[in-house]
């Protein structure tokens, strides 16, 4: 009986008695969710355009952030380092298309998937050789990202909003909105969607697959850079960031691999869900439940929508 009370009653009593903590939890969940969405977006972009599940997306986050900080540490001014990092990510996209995707055209999806495993290890090795394995402090101040917190007195307590989290939420939202506009309203976006629908049909109307692949890998690289900056500023820049990127997996399960809105909504559901779960129900299970709770949330949704929230329903004739 006591257990039932702790599961079904006590959390809601806590929400009522300390509403400031509820708001704080929702805010933390929202910020994490937006960042998860950003990581998931990198996966979705590449999957839509090339049908490849890019296992290297996580290490791209690390590589982009390390490049930025590494260049700054070598004396390059912060904003020039940022611009050069963008150029590096473009170079990476071109190399991936030339050396990895082009020779593997028409190979089964699993071959391309395995190739992204290889890319992961290449980027880990390259990153360690060039920048070393030492952790680096993100150049948040130099990029004029705000520090400190705004403490809002409300609901009989206070809610602490970290300025870096506010910036992360705004920048991530702008990026997501920007990508959505590019996809919907521009010529290149329409080409991307055409490739996503059918490679052959896209080729038949003169769309260059090679060009599209470079564009999506570059876009995924920019998303990785933004994620690396934001997450790096919340902790530090190290190879451990790659693990955080795995948080995108339950988001993708939930949102579907082909849906940009799915990545966004999925990210927020996972982010808010895991923080609420950790805060109100975590102590019942010994705390530290976030790492698996995200998958539980995704699986519950899948029971009702196997194709994910916004994923395409695949109907195959047998």
């Amino acid at each position: 009986m006591d257990l039932l009370y702790q599961i079904f009653v006590d959390p809601f009593v806590q929400m009522g008695t300390a509403p400031d903590l509820l708001v704080q939890t929702l805010w933390e969940g929202l910020v994490s969710g937006v960042l998860y969405a950003l990581i998931a977006l990198g996966f979705v972009l590449i999957f839509k355009a090339s049908g490849v599940f890019n296992f290297a997306q996580g290490i791209m986050v690390v590589f982009a952030a390390l490049t930025l900080v590494g260049l700054y540490e070598k004396g390059v001014p912060a904003f020039l380092a940022l611009a050069l990092t963008i150029v590096v990510m473009l170079g990476l996209a071109v190399l991936v298309e030339r050396l990895m995707l082009r020779p593997l055209v028409n190979q089964p999806d699993i071959v391309l998937f395995m190739a992204t495993f290889g890319l992961t290890y290449v980027l880990i090795g390259l990153g360690e050789i060039i920048f070393g394995g030492d952790p680096k402090v993100m150049i948040a101040d130099q990029l004029y990202l705000p520090r400190g917190a705004i403490d809002v007195n409300m609901l009989g307590g206070f809610v602490s909003l970290q300025k870096i989290d506010i910036a992360a939420a705004i920048i991530a939202s702008l990026m997501v909105a920007g990508l959505a506009v590019v996809f919907q309203k521009t010529r290149i976006g329409r080409a991307l969607r055409a490739v996503a629908d059918s490679h052959k049909a896209a080729l038949s109307v003169g769309i260059s697959l090679e060009q599209i692949w470079v564009v999506v890998w570059f876009a995924a690289g920019i998303v990785a850079l933004a994620t690396g900056i934001m997450w790096g500023a919340r902790s530090n820049v190290s190879f451990a960031l790659e693990i955080v990127s795995l948080k995108a997996l339950p988001v993708l399960i939930l949102g579907g691999l082909t849906s940009i809105p799915g990545a966004i909504v999925g990210g927020i559901i996972i982010g808010v869900g895991e923080k609420l779960g950790e805060f109100y129900w975590g102590p019942l299970l010994g705390s530290g439940i976030e790492s698996w709770l995200a998958y539980v949330i995704a699986l519950i949704f899948l029971l009702f929508r196997p194709q994910g929230l916004f994923g395409e329903r695949i109907i195959e004739r047998i």
């Binding site: 704080q24 939890t25 960031l241 693990i243 955080v244 950790e278 705390s287 976030e290």
Partner: peptide, 16 residues
């Protein structure tokens, strides 16, 4: 407890 996968994602625990 901080699971290895959440070493850089501890905000939920610190709310506790």
């Amino acid at each position: 407890p901080v699971p290895p996968a959440d070493m850089q994602n501890q905000s939920g625990l610190w709310l506790n």
